[in-house]
Amino acid sequence: MQRVNMIMAESPGLITICLLGYLLSAECTVFLDHENANKILNRPKRYNSGKLEEFVQGNLERECMEEKCSFEEAREVFENTERTTEFWKQYVDGDQCESNPCLNGGSCKDDINSYECWCPFGFEGKNCELDVTCNIKNGRCEQFCKNSADNKVVCSCTEGYRLAENQKSCEPAVPFPCGRVSVSQTSKLTRAETVFPDVDYVNSTEAETILDNITQSTQSFNDFTRVVGGEDAKPGQFPWQVVLNGKVDAFCGGSIVNEKWIVTAAHCVETGVKITVVAGEHNIEETEHTEQKRNVIRIIPHHNYNAAINKYNHDIALLELDEPLVLNSYVTPICIADKEYTNIFLKFGSGYVSGWGRVFHKGRSALVLQYLRVPLVDRATCLRSTKFTIYNNMFCAGFHEGGRDSCQGDSGGPHVTEVEGTSFLTGIISWGEECAMKGKYGIYTKVSRYVNWIKEKTKLT
């Protein structure tokens, strides 16, 4: 034993070699072989497995989906700052455009905790909710729209109204504003409101030439003092309507412009014939205590009207009353817009006519005020429907199939267009061939041609 100890002390290297040989010859039971080890760690190889990531292109799944990435790591994937920024906006807080917040056709661009709407022409605001041009839906104005110097929408209202708090709607500024039905039992019968379409306001006024200088022999019209197929109006439903009495009662109609003036057809009036105007009328054979009678003290036909040349060209006249009318729910003026808007309103496509005229061709006159909704007829169809001249200051309205029309005794009465609950004068009943005849239409004086003249002559002093 002493000898062994001496050998170990003198030859430590020998001992180490012996131990190493023993270990190498022993069977290893701690580690699995290569094949079995792979069965336990069965993990798919990654895209760049075996390579240094710093030297390969980034992978979106590896960089940002398996674990949260930084902007720089995302930049490695896209290799483009702009594309990385677009991805980053949604990656950080989701897609803010998912709810489609942009209105009126706006395009949404996502941002971090926010979004941006790219608005089409005519709109602005956070969600493109603000109209900035009158060309689109009248700028959301209830009545009139004008573009300011910086191309912003400025709404306005006709006389007797003021802008509401929203700067879009119009509200009454006087007790009985024009064009409004205020009798409670008839307010439910107000005709369907007309909503502004998209309009090209630059070209809204037709490029028409008034044929002022045409000389033409007097034409022989049949029954051209021209509501057939209409309905009984309720008291106060058309408070701007008046009836004219002269040699015979209810020979023509008219509309209240203001307390002192009536507008009617020029062919209705004769110099030297006494005319009485009755406002607030409903049943011409009954006294309903809503009527107001006034005498006409002055007749002003349009300066281009000449019955000797043509009885229905420039067929418009103004009547001055001896005493002002007292405005109330049964006696209310009709609204008159400017030339541009009167023309736009007419193009809405349908209007209402009213009167006490004959209820059928050569038949009896109506006792109760009649009204009828009539569609506008395109000019080409209008011209083809008659052998008589249709001037540019006239328009056609009615039904091709016949059966409904204005008729004798309705002449001078109103053709009105309702705009968001307020009625505007767009025409004056003038003439036609018979009444409600198939293929024939009622012919009306186009008020847009005469609004400046009306307003100039009827100013209240």
Rank of each mutant, 00 (worst) to 15 (best):
A233M: 08
V277L: 03
L189Y: 11
L376K: 05
P175K: 13
L346C: 02
G272R: 12
T158F: 03
A436K: 12
L327G: 02
G355S: 06
L327E: 03
F348N: 13
I284K: 07
V269M: 08
F424W: 12
D223V: 07
D405E: 15
I284G: 08
I214W: 07
T194W: 12
I15N: 03
T84F: 04
D322R: 03
V447P: 03
N213E: 08
C97N: 00
L372D: 11
E340S: 07
A436Y: 07
H400S: 12
F121R: 04
F71Q: 15
V181G: 11
T386F: 09
E54R: 08
T186I: 12
A279F: 02
C335Y: 00
V296S: 03
L163T: 04
C97H: 00
G351H: 04
F78H: 14
D378P: 11
E165S: 12
C28W: 01
N213W: 05
M394D: 02
Y444K: 01
N104K: 02
V416S: 07
E281F: 08
N38V: 09
H34L: 06
V202Q: 14
V277H: 00
P301I: 09
Q237G: 09
Y91G: 15
A265K: 01
K260L: 09
H400F: 10
I428R: 00
V242A: 05
T332Q: 03
G421T: 05
V248I: 13
T342S: 13
N295V: 08
D33I: 07
P12F: 15
E27H: 08
H289D: 08
G229M: 12
K126L: 10
S411V: 15
K168Q: 11
K387Y: 05
P175W: 04
V195M: 12
S411N: 12
T16E: 04
K387P: 07
N313A: 13
W261R: 00
S204C: 05
W431F: 11
F221M: 09
Y161G: 01
Y161M: 04
T158I: 09
R294K: 03
V269A: 10
S217R: 07
Q96F: 10
W88T: 15
E208C: 07
T225V: 13
A207V: 09
P235H: 07
P172A: 11
M6K: 11
G230S: 11
R3C: 14
L103P: 01
A149S: 09
C18A: 11
Y115K: 02
L325I: 03
Q57S: 08
A317C: 05
I40R: 09
C178G: 01
I7T: 11
S184H: 11
D232Q: 08
Y371Q: 12
V359P: 04
C145W: 02
R294V: 02
N295K: 12
L244Q: 01
K126A: 11
L367C: 08
S255T: 15
E72Q: 10
C178F: 01
H314L: 00
M437Y: 13
I15E: 02
I336T: 03
D410V: 13
N151W: 06
P301H: 08
W118A: 02
V174Y: 05
V228A: 14
V296F: 01
C119L: 00
T133P: 06
L376T: 08
V77D: 15
T426F: 01
Q408T: 15
C396L: 02
D33C: 03
F87P: 15
K311Q: 05
I256Q: 01
N310K: 06
E79D: 15
F123N: 03
